[in-house]
Simulated scan of single mutants.
Amino acid sequence: MKPRALLLNLAVAVIALVVLFPLAWMVSVSFMSTGEAANFPPPLLPSTWTLEHYRELFVTQGMGRYLLNSVVLATLATILALLFTVPAGYAFAKLRFRGRERLFQLLVAALVVPAQIGTLPLFLMLKGMGLVNTYAGALVPWLASIFGLFLVRQYALSIPDEMLEAARVDGASEGQIFRRIVLPSLKPIVVTLALFVFLGSWNDFLWPLIILTDQSNYTLPVALAALSREHVQDIEMMMAGAVITVAPVLILFLALQRYYIRGMLAGSVKG
């Protein structure tokens, strides 16, 4: 191996180690006995491996309920986002209607506006509709993401117009064209968008904190923040809670990584 390539691989390995070390230490601390992580210098591995903190979280602190809340909300957010965003993105790419370009430009311009600005008006609207402290209220921001719309639209532009026109000439309806031609062509970007929405909904903290007032409806990030105020000194329990929060989405990302990369690369080349 050439010296330059060796140095490059070494640099990549060092960067990977720096990035992964906090995650690995978090997992290690979650199996330590209470107070062991507070020693100086902090130990890298537990002297005695224990599951006491995980038992405490699920048996006493009700972490199973919060985990179920996160799974349900993230799954519903992903399904609803795909139902609304994918057809809309295709329409902006391939269907002709008055004001299409101007409307799309207006939506893209809204991307520069911080999402937090719309939090208060959205909360007041949902309060008037009686959707505060409901799953429906927590799902509203995920129904139609402008970024997701842009992502699908850019990818859908790569679908040949000739293929769509041929299907119309053969008598296919727009619904049939969308189901049989467009959706299979959009599969990589649909998986990518689903992964984006699921991860974003799972990790979202601010909106569930605002809209969900009943503790039994908390998601994992909100529940973990509330738990940290009561057990701020229990580092091992907090790390166990962090592992429970991070592990599902990390496993999901690794399982769908090849589809995610394929969708992003294909979108960047074709879009």
Score class of each variant (00 low, 15 high):
residue 145 S to P: 03
residue 125 M to I: 11
residue 70 S to Y: 10
residue 225 A to Y: 13
residue 115 A to E: 13
residue 54 Y to D: 02
residue 264 M to I: 05
residue 229 R to P: 05
residue 59 V to F: 14
residue 118 G to T: 03
residue 63 M to Y: 09
residue 134 T to I: 08
residue 134 T to V: 07
residue 61 Q to K: 00
residue 99 G to M: 11
residue 47 S to Y: 10
residue 195 L to W: 00
residue 196 F to D: 08
residue 128 G to L: 08
residue 199 L to I: 15
residue 146 I to H: 02
residue 222 V to I: 09
residue 43 P to C: 02
residue 22 P to T: 05
residue 81 A to N: 01
residue 228 S to I: 07
residue 35 G to T: 01
residue 140 V to S: 01
residue 235 I to D: 00
residue 242 A to N: 15
residue 116 Q to Y: 06
residue 137 G to I: 04
residue 18 V to L: 09
residue 150 F to W: 07
residue 135 Y to Q: 14
residue 147 F to N: 04
residue 41 P to G: 03
residue 98 R to I: 13
residue 101 E to F: 15
residue 36 E to L: 00
residue 174 E to P: 04
residue 58 F to W: 12
residue 270 K to Y: 05
residue 231 H to K: 04
residue 34 T to W: 00
residue 70 S to G: 12
residue 67 L to I: 06
residue 156 A to L: 09
residue 58 F to A: 04
residue 224 L to R: 01
residue 188 P to Y: 09
residue 219 T to S: 04
residue 113 V to W: 10
residue 14 V to H: 08
residue 191 V to S: 11
residue 147 F to Y: 12
residue 51 L to H: 15
residue 190 V to N: 02
residue 56 E to K: 13
residue 21 F to G: 06
residue 150 F to E: 02
residue 6 L to E: 13
residue 102 R to Q: 12
residue 48 T to A: 12
residue 193 L to T: 03
residue 111 L to M: 11
residue 12 V to I: 13
residue 239 M to G: 01
residue 59 V to E: 15
residue 14 V to C: 11
residue 135 Y to A: 15
residue 47 S to A: 14
residue 223 A to W: 05
residue 205 F to D: 06
residue 63 M to I: 10
residue 254 L to K: 07
